[in-house]
Design a protein around this nucleic acid. Structure first.
Lengths: 253, 253
DNA sequence: CGGCTGCTTGAACTTGTTCAACAGCGGTGG
DNA sequence: CCACCGCTGTTGAACAAGTTCAAGCAGCCG
C-alpha cells in the first residue's frame, strides 16, 4: 500500500517528485508505534511536534470532569494531528489510539524547514486542517439535528468515504475496530441505544458486520437515510474512482 | 469604543503601531452594512474575500434538505469569517446576520499584501481561525454530552466571555438579540424546551432578561452548572480584567 | 386597531436512557 | 484442557428527557 499520508495530501493537487520525496522523509523520520487504547496527547499538553498518522485508528475526545466523554473526531491513516499546536500553544483535547497505531512525529523545526522549501506541502497540511474543521461542523449538525439512526448512518458514511480516499476500502468493506462504546461516545448516545440502532441498520439490509470488518451493502440507501452530503469532506472526486463499489452521488438527491 | 477587530486580534500579542495602522486600513476599506436576518454567505459560495465583523451579531449554520437547521457558531464583533475560503475554495455552510451588521471585506489580494508586510497580523488571523475550531469542538461536546439546561447555560457563558473580551459587557450585562428559535437551532432543542429551560435558569436566579439585554446575575454558579471551562476559548486572561464583574476561574473546580 | 412574531404553558406522546439480566468471546491461570 | 473472569453486545422493562400539538398571551409594528 502506498503511504497514506502522501495519498491523502495529494488528493487535491499532486506533488512533484521532489515534494513527494520530502514528504516521505518527514513520514519516515521519527516513526512511533503505540498499542491500542493509549493516550497520545492529553488535554493541556503543548507538544512540540505534529503527528502524521500512517496506520491504525485513533480518536480525538474531550472529557467532562464527571466522566462524560465526547469523541469529537476519528483520526484515520493519512490524517494529521494537529497543526494548531504551534498556533494556540496549549491543546484543549486528548487523542487516544483505538487500534495499535504508527505515526510520524514532525518537529516544529522540521516543519518550518519543509515549509520554506516546499510550499505545496504546507498548503496541503493547511487544507487538511481546514477539512478537519469542516468535519467538526458537520459533527455539530449530526449531534444537533439528526436522529439516532441517522447519526450512526452518517458516521459510517463518513468513515467509509474517508477510508476509501486512502485506499482502505475494498468492495465496500473496511476494518471496523470501533466498539459500541466508541460509537456511543461519538454520537452522544447510550451504548444500549447504539446496539439497537446498529441492529436496525443491519435489519434494513444496509450494513453487515463480520468480526472486525464492516460491509456497507447499500451505500446509496445508507447515504439517503443519513442525509449524507459528501461535500463537507472536501475529498477530491478523482480518488473515489479507484473502487468501483463506491459511487458518490453529487449532492443528496 | 475601540475597533473590536484590533481589540480581539491583539488579545494574544499586542501589535506595533504600524501593524495596528495596517489593520485599521483593512477594517475601514470596503465596509459593508446589512440589515438583520440577511444571508451574508450561502453554502456553495466561493467568496473572494474574508470578512472582519465590526458590529452586530451573525451566525454560521448548516441546513438539511428537509429544513432542519443547525447553527454551528455565533459570529460576534471582532470575529473573522472565514479564512478557510482561500484554502478549500467552496464553502460548506451559510452565514446570516442576526442583527444589523457592519463588516469589512478584505480581498485575497489585500490579505496577501498585508501578510507579506505584517506577519503578525496574519498570525493573529490564523490564531483566530484555530480558536474558532476549538469552539466548534466544544460545541460538539455541548450537543453530545450536556443536558438541556447545561447546554443553554454553556452557550450563555461562552457568548458572555467572548463579548467581554471585546469590551461589550458592562456589569455582567450584554446585548441579547437571540430569539429562542436561534437558541433552539444552536442547541439542537425544540423552542418549547428552550423556553422552559431559560425560565428555569431565571428561576434559579442565574440570569435575568430585560428587553434585548441579558444580565448574568451569578456567573460562577452559571459556569458551574454549565461545566464551563473557558480554556477552549483561548482568550488571554489580561482581557478579562477590564470588567470587575467578570472573574474567570482557572479550570472548573 | 389588527396582525404578526415570539414566548409561555399544559397535556399527550416519542425518543432515548437506565437498570438489570444474560449471552458470547477471548484471555488467563490452575 | 477447562474454569473463570472481564469486556462487549443484546434484550426487556421501567423511566426520564425532550418533542409535538395546541391554545393563549404579550409586545411590536404598520
Amino acid at each position: 500500500m502506498p503511504n497514506p499520508i502522501a495519498r491523502k495530501l495529494e488528493l487535491f493537487k499532486p506533488f512533484s517528485k521532489d515534494e513527494r520525496a520530502a514528504l516521505l522523509r518527514l513520514a519516515t523520520g521519527r516513526v512511533r508505534q503505540l498499542p491500542a487504547r493509549t493516550d497520545i496527547i492529553r488535554e493541556g499538553d503543548a507538544p512540540q511536534s505534529i503527528y502524521l498518522f500512517i496506520s491504525g485508528w485513533a480518536c480525538r475526545y474531550k472529557e467532562l470532569p464527571d466522566g462524560r466523554r465526547q469523541i469529537t473526531a476519528f483520526v484515520l491513516p493519512g490524517d494529521t494531528c494537529d497543526l494548531s499546536v504551534f498556533i494556540l500553544g496549549e491543546i484543549d483535547y486528548s487523542v487516544s489510539s483505538i487500534t495499535p497505531v504508527t505515526f510520524a512525529e514532525v518537529s516544529r523545526e522540521a516543519l518550518e524547514e519543509v515549509s520554506l522549501k516546499h510550499q505545496h506541502i504546507m498548503e496541503a497540511l493547511h487544507r487538511e486542517n481546514q477539512a478537519a474543521s469542516a468535519m467538526q461542523r458537520e459533527w455539530t449538525v449530526n449531534l444537533g439535528q439528526r436522529t439516532a439512526i441517522e447519526r450512526i448512518a452518517h458516521l459510517i458514511c463518513e468513515v467509509l468515504l474517508r477510508l476509501h480516499s486512502v485506499g482502505l476500502v475494498c468492495a465496500s468493506t473496511c476494518e471496523w475496530p470501533l466498539t459500541q462504546i466508541d460509537l456511543a461516545d461519538a454520537t452522544g448516545m447510550s451504548t444500549v441505544h447504539v446496539s439497537r440502532t446498529v441492529t436496525a441498520l443491519k435489519r434494513l439490509g444496509l450494513i453487515t458486520q463480520d468480526g472486525h470488518q464492516l460491509t456497507v451493502t447499500d451505500l446509496p440507501e445508507l447515504m439517503r437515510l443519513a442525509i449524507f452530503d459528501s461535500k463537507y469532506l472536501h475529498i477530491c472526486q478523482k480518488a473515489t474512482n479507484d473502487d468501483a463499489f463506491i459511487k458518490v452521488e453529487p449532492g443528496y438527491a
